[in-house]
Nucleic acid binder design. Structure first.
Lengths: 199, 199
DNA sequence: CCTCCATAGTCAAGAATCTGAGTAGTCAGA
DNA sequence: TCTGACTACTCAGATTCTTGACTATGGAGG
């Protein structure tokens, strides 16, 4: 039960519709929590039912109506409670790392391709996050913003996201290059990779 | 359906019991995929049913019997297929980042404490992973090992884990120190953090 | 005119994951 | 002797997440 808190935290920045949240309007949020639109809509409905957010219908013409949500005082209280509760350890779940772990046992070609692809995606995210950081801090420099800004939470999480993506990119490129240099591509290793421990 | 491939990849290193897998015998695996013991046991049973791993009963005295598993040829084929399939984008899910995102809206004290705690955990992991890397590469230096070693998958994923934990540690310490310097601790921000956009 | 894309959602079903407890023997320490 | 910790695993139930639809309107491009 933490998607709810991610949504609450995202809504601290103002009023948003489920659609906006789903669009990853704030890369920062997508950055530490990932969810499909359906989940967000469902969660917003639940949150409203629990009185932690309040929604209002906005009638639009030329396009469908939408519902905009903001955090209520009860929602802030709930966030406060959540902040005090012990944090669960974070974890990565990454298909690509699984593939790299297994790369000695299979043909490396597709893994190399995916590492390069991932590096490109990470690079794009680095740029987006860099822009977002500049936008968040405005004209002042980072040091000053962090000490005096009123809303530093999103800035800090974006920093973390940026570092993560940057590191991801570097690692993917190193790993891909290494696999290319080893010439592991094209040939599947003989037999299975595991060696019987003198069995 | 990717826990199964994580388990297969982990078993490429040899023969292991569910208990060993669960213990995170290989930090490298815990590093890119997290699962509870129950899941691992269930997955191993399913994998065996599908013929992707084979298990054998090992009778022990003085302690319960166990079942040791190894990957079958069909399992390697399945890993090969998995490696070729498009990878889903990775994502982090982290309670602590949610809390930091919301830190402007709530009392920072517990968040600071959790950042420091997390930094300590990350530091411990950095050391464990560092040792694991040294053990994996043996006497040769990294460059040489990566070019000539037979089993570099786990080494690469450990490298990634190490970089991640190291970055986590640095960020947590920076963020905690910043929040302390801002003196955001002890006082809950007045009212809710969101400001009505001139509503 | 027809199709695709964007907006703005909703619903249902199934897979994956987590919570929590239970079994059962061995060994170490108070 | 009792308690707790370690090995080794199992089961049931709840929650969460993913997959894959489906509704409906408006505008752009071919």
């Amino acid at each position: 039960m933490a998607l709810r808190h991610a949504v609450l935290a995202a809504l601290l920045d103002g009023e948003f519709s489920g659609y906006q949240l789903a669009k990853g309007f704030d890369i920062g949020v997508a950055n530490f929590w990932h969810a499909l639109p359906q989940q967000l809509y469902a969660e917003l409905t639940r949150l409203e039912g629990d009185g932690l957010v309040s929604g209002r219908e906005v009638v639009q013409d030329g396009r469908p109506n939408k519902r905009m949500f903001r955090v209520t005082d009860a929602g802030v209280t709930e966030l406060q409670r959540f902040a005090t509760a012990p944090a669960k350890p974070s974890f990565i779940r990454d298909d690509l790392l699984v593939k790299v772990q297994a790369v000695d046992g299979v043909d490396a070609t597709p893994v190399i391709a995916q590492l390069q692809e991932r590096a490109a995606v990470a690079e794009a995210k680095v740029e987006v996050l860099g822009k977002l950081l500049r936008r968040l801090r405005g004209d002042v420099d980072e040091e000053e913003f962090l000490l005096t800004g009123q809303r530093i939470g999103p800035y800090l999480t974006c920093q973390r996201g940026l570092a993560f993506e940057s590191e991801t990119r570097a690692w993917c490129l190193r790993a891909a290059e290494l696999l290319v240099r080893r010439g592991s591509a094209g040939r599947a290793p003989s037999g299975s990779a595991h060696r019987r421990p003198a069995g």
